[in-house]
Design a protein around this nucleic acid. Sequence first.
DNA 1: CCAATTAATATTGTGCACAATCTAATTGTC
DNA 2: GACAATTAGATTGTGCACAATATTAATTGG
Lengths: 158, 158
Amino acid sequence: MHNVFPMEPIVTVDAPQDPLQLDNQICFPLYSAANAVTRAYRPLLAEFDLTYLQYIVMMVLWERQRVNVKTLGEELHLDSGTLTPLLKRLEAKALVVRQRSESDERVREISLTEAGRALKVKMGQVPAKLACRVDLSVEELTELKRLSQKLLSQLSQG
Amino acid sequence: MHNVFPMEPIVTVDAPQDPLQLDNQICFPLYSAANAVTRAYRPLLAEFDLTYLQYIVMMVLWERQRVNVKTLGEELHLDSGTLTPLLKRLEAKALVVRQRSESDERVREISLTEAGRALKVKMGQVPAKLACRVDLSVEELTELKRLSQKLLSQLSQG
DNA sequence: CCAATTAATATTGTGCACAATCTAATTGTC
DNA sequence: GACAATTAGATTGTGCACAATATTAATTGG
């Protein structure tokens, strides 16, 4: 664009600092990076017939032995529309069982099978395999995690 | 857990620093934050009958007037399996046209309709509406963007 | 010049995400 | 104790993401 006012600063009307310009988006790199993460995990997890989210759910179960759908959803920021079919798939793979709570028939208690528990040992090398593709300092990783959590918590409010 | 060896440091075998523990995942907060972003944009964009990704694609077109699917995919880190149906939806909404290149019949040139161009003006307040839900400093936002881009570029290699 | 190869999209199938809605069980409240 | 309100999940439908594959057009090597 030609600057027709030579005495004025060379600034066009909407190009620099246009909030509707892709370069000025903070969230899109975040979005792309999150996609890249699941893409990078995919071949590592395919070996164990798991998707990234299934792997995350298994991690929760490895820590707690038993969770209901509501608690799981709160912890992972996901709803039953996502979790119900996912948990059915994990059940179909015989990694978890989905039983109803005795005290409240509405709640589904998810727990590990023996195969599900055993999988943790087999997958011990997965985090390191991903980590070796990432060359960020410990400080950078910590900061990325902190900022992601901060953004998440702010966007989760009203 | 009870420490049965009072002279030993209080450390359990696999709980602290277990790389298969959810708390120790860097990428999961990133994943959750990216979901939170599209969730936060949803009501703002619903007013314009756009999804988050459709909005991003429109942003590319507002800058360039004309792109083919390959270039768009490289820029957004997405493939034709994602973009083809999305672009058909934008075409159905009469925001873009998808014509074949004259010089190479394989390539699809995407360009804006008048309505598509006009939409930019109408959406001028969207970025600010999202931004006011986020209380991060400029430095933090810049750092989040930088780290996301760094992670993305490293995971996109080999 | 034409068969083989390569390149650009499109298609198909699976698995998230999530809004909206539905069902069934539980918990008030009178 | 009946019944309205609430709660936990399940279901349905839309739109990404992406691997795998198919289709069609261009390019190239002999």
